[in-house]
Design a protein around this nucleic acid. Sequence first.
RNA 1: GCCCGGGUGGCGGAAUGGCAGACGCGGCGGAUUCAAAAUCCGCUGUCCGAAAGGGCGUGUGGGUUCGACUCCCACCCCGGGCACCA
Length: 970
Amino acid sequence: MADTTTAATDQAVPATDARTETDDTPPHRYNAALAQDIELKWQRYWDEHAMFETPNPSGPLADPERMADRGEKLFVLDMFPYPSGSGLHVGHPLGYIGTDIYSRFQRMRGRNVLYSMGFDAFGLPAEQYAVQTGQHPAITTAENVANMRRQLHRLGLSHDRRRSIETTDPDYYRWTQWIFRTIFDAWYDTEADKARPISELIQQFAKGKRATPDGRPWADLTAAEQGDVLAGYRLAYVSDAPVNWCPGLGTVVANEEVTADGRSDRGNFPVFKRNMRQWMMRITAYADRLLDDLDALDWTDAIKTMQRNWIGRSEGATVHFPSAAGPITVFTTRPDTLFGATFMVLAPEHPLVDELTTPDQAEAVAAYRKAAAAKKEMDRTDDTREKTGVPIGGTATNPVTGEDIPVWIADYVLMGYGTGAIMAVPCGDQRDFEFARKYDLAIPAIQQPPEAWFAAHGIEPTSGADTSSWPEAYIGDAPYINSSNTALLNGDLDLNGISDVAEGVTAINEWLEANELGEATVTYKLRDWLFSRQRYWGEPFPIVYDDDGVPHALPDDLLPVELPETDSFSPRTFDPDDAGSNPESPLDRLGDWVTVELDLGDGKKAYRRDTNVMPQWAGSCWYELRYLDPTNDKRFVDPEVEEYWMGPRTDVRPDHPGGVDLYVGGVEHAVLHLLYARFWHKVLYDLGHVSSWEPYVRLFNQGYILADAYKDEREIYVDAFAVEERDGGFYFEGEPVTREWGKMGKSLKNAVSPDDMYAQYGADTLRLYEMSMGPLDQSRPWETRDVVGMYRFLQRFWRNAVDEDTGELTVVDNEPDNETARLLHRTIDAVTTECEELRFNTAIAKLIELNNHVTKLDAAPRSVIQAMTLMVAPFAPHIGEELWSRLGHEDSLTYVPFPTADPALLVDDQVELAVQVNGKVRGRVTVAADADDATITALALAEENVARTLDGKAPKKVIVIPGRMVNIVA
RNA sequence: GCCCGGGUGGCGGAAUGGCAGACGCGGCGGAUUCAAAAUCCGCUGUCCGAAAGGGCGUGUGGGUUCGACUCCCACCCCGGGCACCA
């Protein structure tokens, strides 16, 4: 899911950096070599003691004893990675370090934490990498996964490794196929507003409770006809519809995978709209719920807005304009402006254009349509271009005025949105206004804009229909004028006097419905999800076709449908611009596999397998559910286990939807993974398979790690580590290069491997550095030279407890002095809050401050070092465990309670207050914490520098902010 | 064009109405060393000043307030998302 670039190298762990080791280095100094010893030792210990195994309430992973020890559940999840050939760079684990710290912290706070990691291993990059290397994707994927597992383990992440999954594992994708079949065997009941099993629909047809499309009894329909009818209802269905064909990739792709300029998200190849027979998922049935339920989620507004925009709900009306060729139907969000509709505009591709074109316009129309078709291939980014169009000669009738209005075609009307036709209201829509001005069409006013609007445009107010002085269309609430058909048609519609758009819309919608000229309608930008791909490295469909071409889902005992072994896994790709090419699925070539003889209940028959595979996103639509119950071979997840980990927490808030308690990942999945996974989860919820109605209740988007990248004069990236900076310029092999920011990655030749950081400083230092760079949700530039700061912190911390020459513990059993005790407890208080809020950068700063204070003491009190060790442990768990063990504890600190602050030590008896004169600090006074205002005022006025500044002037006013400051107004 | 973020020392950042620059890097000075690295200690926004102290300072201009990085209004710049969506 989280993509990484592909290229080979399975790095061996480099030897530790010799830089810091010389003969006179104290033998027990915390350096890279010691860090490595400590880290490997504790990683082994954690593994051997199954330290991070989390008990389930029931089933194979149940452990009543452990369960009894643990408190309230907490499910922490990362967006699982895509196993690339180049392994991890230091940018990848940013979020993982954050979730690990949070998980470790919460374990110490008593929570039963579920934390694991899997691999999203199907998909294009693995297949492309395999094609490049000639090795089967299963082999390269397994190698890549193994390398990434090693790198993540070396970082000290506290995963429950029993729960790890790979989406390419047949034991996993068996359930991906099972869920597909479940979706295939379901339909959306708009009455109940939820998905139901398809068998219940068939029963309705069979019993005559629901009429077939042509009214014949269900039993009279052939099997193929029944199949077609059901396809119109199923949540997964095959349809012949316009899809995105990408010859360069050799496959079709989903709308979500096409960029704004009409190219493939992956590979950046041109994408063409073509009618093809493909699998679709009826995500549109869930459009309203996907939209409305965002309110129940603790996600950033940015991501919610992106999902709302993608779903693109707009409310309005469909209106039918009678014409010689039959009614022209339009969708409008402003039916209230219908009286101002003075012309219509159709998309050039609109099917009624031919019939409505008059002979005298035929030539112009043909020319315009040809030009429009050509334009499609050009960059559509030119959004400033002037609107063009031609009249086609025919007319349509405005249903509220009865007037005949001209029909035009123009390429600013899109066939793919709404009905491909609009009514043009030039006085109330800016595009229509510009179009009307350009082609000299009537622009009668139907609303009276307020005075302020005219004033703002510097024109004299007009009244009545005259808009000749208007510089632009008027949009918004205003009293309607010229909006009645009582005189025109002897009708009964009169909006005049209404001054509110909502009210106007309601009135006109009622009239349209009563007169059968239109109805209130909601449209969406969201389209059904194109679900099939003509590739090899993906989940096969659990579907076979009979002789009539009717799809049949395979029963449980035939799952999984394993991906067949083959050497010819390369997809057939084409010239990227060859729009006329046709997809060929690699599985099509495997004749033996494609045809099967099966008994699906009515005797042995020959069937043909579906040769598509599922898209990259299928496996990530439900993986969090499999973490819960990874070994279950009866169900994809046991309901009791799901309810424990993900059930709605109505005790937290009444609208709590359930789901993962904390989900951390990048923003790039805003409308892909996050939308698809929500959709699948809701289907599973409707059918009673899960108790939560949203998969991820809280989403946190971490930033990216950026790094300098350098391009030479040919615009080619050069090795960033060989670039020299001198005289304010940058040089590579003596040639000048230019610097730019980018995400870290192989393609920009600026990737830093965590393996190098482990060798130079150790995993604990790397973890601290990544967290200390700034807030987790912010992107930040990587600076290898800055890493040493956190290394020094750990070194000083170590030295506060351990003698560098002898290795002996140096802590003393004395109680800390008052100042130290207070600082310790303030630190505990702050670190606790900051960890709860994922503000790890400031938590680390507070720990460093405390450590710097302890450094200045003659000897460190045991109680202080002990508390510090527990607080440092979530961030730097290896050194934490090591010191904890040296402090005399036999067991791991993993489940030792996090220190708690003594409230008595958080309040000081003496406080220092800043004294301001006219808002500028002029001095400070120390007073008792409970001193009254008069005492404070007297002390403040007496302060030497304050008195000098006042220079004998009497203060006009003194403001005392208890515990903080004094401001003297002079 | 619309919608989100964001603009603070040489750099990453802290402070969300109350002492601007916590913490870290870098830099400067010192200790240690034959020397260096590593480590340790001190200083480090800027200008004036020997110092005490003072002026200026959070993108720009205004406003609210005893007090503004923080709140309000207008604008500029950077990053991201959406975009003939009817």
